[in-house]
């Protein structure tokens, strides 16, 4: 499967997951966004040797993944990219920080090993938390939450439009790439002589599409405002969700600090 079709299929899968019926999907996007950001802030606030405290924070992910019946298949795929980067940064730590921090059955664990492990765990937690958010909340709902947080209308509108047109343009790019590959068998990638014409044609077609989009938006009464709405208003359960998780996360953090 090509990189482009891979991306298209991933987007479809995420959309389908977010549309699934479930209690986590039913929670209002604003508390979900708030709890996710709080979790991320607390995760990265742990010091480089505070592995034990960080491990306790994992209860948030375990509870939500298990009770929310969230598939981890897609998560593992996403994890690859981030873990590679995080490992690259952490792998040098054991060479520079050789202070012995603790003994595990006669094996001395150095500060560098501990900090590398903490860094990797932070990476896993951060990707998992973002995944939890996107797999239970649609992009429209996230945009709605962003508007409620007073993120400028222009930025949210552009975010919505980019998201809506990504699949259209990915499919168009895939068609063009396939057509090119069929005319240049055995060639990997795009030859330098075709750099300008290939991507330039795509850009020109995109600009024409933008004009068509603008015309159709005007015909439908576009007045500069995209009206985002949520399926329902935030209720008592949503506030309870935010309050309980905030208390748990802050309790874990405070407990580790003590």
């Amino acid at each position: 499967m090509s990189r482009i079709s891979d991306a298209i299929s991933e987007l479809h899968k995420l959309d389908m997951e977010a549309d699934k019926p479930g209690w986590l999907q039913g929670i209002h996007p604003l508390p979900k966004l708030f709890v996710t950001v709080l979790f991320l802030v607390i995760t990265v606030s742990f010091g480089k040797y505070e592995l034990s405290g960080l491990l306790k924070l994992g209860i948030y992910l375990i509870v939500l993944f298990v009770l929310g019946d969230i598939s981890v298949k897609l998560l593992l795929k996403r994890m690859k990219v981030v873990l590679a980067l995080v490992c690259l940064m952490g792998i040098v730590n054991p060479f520079f920080d050789r202070r012995e921090m603790l003994l595990l059955g006669g094996f001395a664990v150095t500060g560098g090993m501990l900090s590398a492990a903490t860094l990797m765990l932070k990476g896993v937690y951060a990707v998992s938390a973002s995944y939890l958010l996107i797999v239970t909340t649609s992009v429209e709902e996230i945009c709605y939450a962003l508007r409620r947080l007073h993120v400028p209308k222009l930025i949210v509108t552009v975010l919505m439009l980019v998201y809506r047109y990504i699949i259209v343009l990915l499919k168009e790019t895939e068609r063009m790439t396939e057509a090119y590959a069929l005319r240049a068998p055995g060639q990997r990638g795009l030859d330098y002589k075709a750099w300008g014409t290939f991507a330039g044609q795509l850009l020109l077609r995109s600009m024409d599409r933008a004009q068509t989009v603008y015309d159709s938006m005007m015909l439908r009464g576009y007045d500069g405002e995209f009206y985002l709405r949520c399926k329902r208003a935030a209720g008592r359960g949503d506030y309870l969700y935010a309050a309980v998780w905030s208390a748990v996360l802050l309790f874990v953090r405070a407990g580790s600090a003590g």
Binding site: R3, I166, T173, Y192, W195, A199, S206, A210
Partner: peptide
């Protein structure tokens, strides 16, 4: 001219996203 620019920004954003998936071979 914001009304005209917003759709162009959306479509151009999607274009950049899609174009970054193209592998430009370095000779």
């Amino acid at each position: 001219d914001l009304d005209r620019k917003v759709p162009a920004m959306g479509v151009m954003g999607a274009f950049v996203f899609a174009a970054q998936m193209i592998n430009f071979t370095i000779p």
